[in-house]
């Protein structure tokens, strides 16, 4: 085994890792935002809002991410008439997919704050939206932080799927170098190690937050 292949190609590999992070971070930011709206929609008293939100979430959660990516790669050029750069298309697919998962976390976070809290807040004269903003959401956020962090780790792990559509994220970069230098053992083990360290740190963070 010759691990120098890794140091020789480290810049290229790190570039790939950066792209993985980019995809993950953009996904998290956008899908979490959308998820908040979907979550509120899920608990809405109006059926016209509740049903579509539920359908959206269940639809997306029933399909594998890789299939959703294929869907979007097919539909986006079809609908928009032009071909977007692959990063953008993948990002859209990821955002839509993970919005459904984040929405469930946000929803259970909101529901974990007992209804009696809302009643207590209302009884002191606060309006519904004030109660939501000042009482419910801060508590909900603290409750769901561990689950959110865990989901972020899952997003990061999910970026490997972008390999399938040829985006140069970390796994794809690794496989390119592995093919070129014919040293798959060293390179894939290295990739596994990098992912292991990053995700392990993430799950530890989630555990730490849970204990607080």
């Amino acid at each position: 085994m010759d691990f120098s292949v890794i140091s020789d190609n480290i810049e290229f590999l790190m570039l790939g890792l950066m792209r993985s992070f980019q995809l993950a971070v953009f996904t998290i930011v956008f899908s979490l935002t959308i998820a908040c709206f979907i979550a509120i929609g899920r608990v809405s008293s109006r059926r016209a809002i509740r049903y579509p939100s539920a359908i959206f979430v269940n639809l997306l959660r029933s399909n594998p991410l890789i299939l959703i990516v294929f869907w979007f790669f097919f539909l986006v050029p079809l609908i928009t008439g032009k071909t977007l750069p692959e990063f953008h298309t993948v990002l859209i697919a990821f955002v839509v997919f993970f919005a459904a998962y984040f929405a469930e976390i946000v929803r259970s976070g909101i529901q974990s704050v007992g209804a009696s809290q809302v009643k207590a807040a209302l009884s002191t004269g606060l309006t519904y939206s004030q109660s939501m903003r000042l009482i419910v959401l801060p508590q909900a956020f603290r409750n769901m932080l561990p689950a959110l962090v865990t989901e972020c780790v899952i997003v990061f792990q999910g970026t490997t799927i972008a390999y399938v559509i040829g985006m140069r994220e970390f796994l794809h970069s690794t496989s390119l170098v592995a093919e070129r230098t014919v040293r798959p053992v060293e390179l894939y083990l290295f990739a596994a190690l990098v992912y292991l360290v990053i995700c392990f740190a993430g799950t530890r963070l989630a555990l730490f937050l849970e204990k607080k």
């Binding site: 490997t160 496989s175 798959p184 894939y188 992912y195 392990f200």
Partner: peptide
């Protein structure tokens, strides 16, 4: 648990497919 949970599934599949036979 920590090893098999923190390495993405796709990477694990690659390890078994490309690396394992060579070892």
């Amino acid at each position: 648990v920590e090893i098999f949970r923190n390495i993405p599934l796709l990477v694990q599949l690659f390890l078994w497919f490309f690396v394992f036979p060579l070892l």
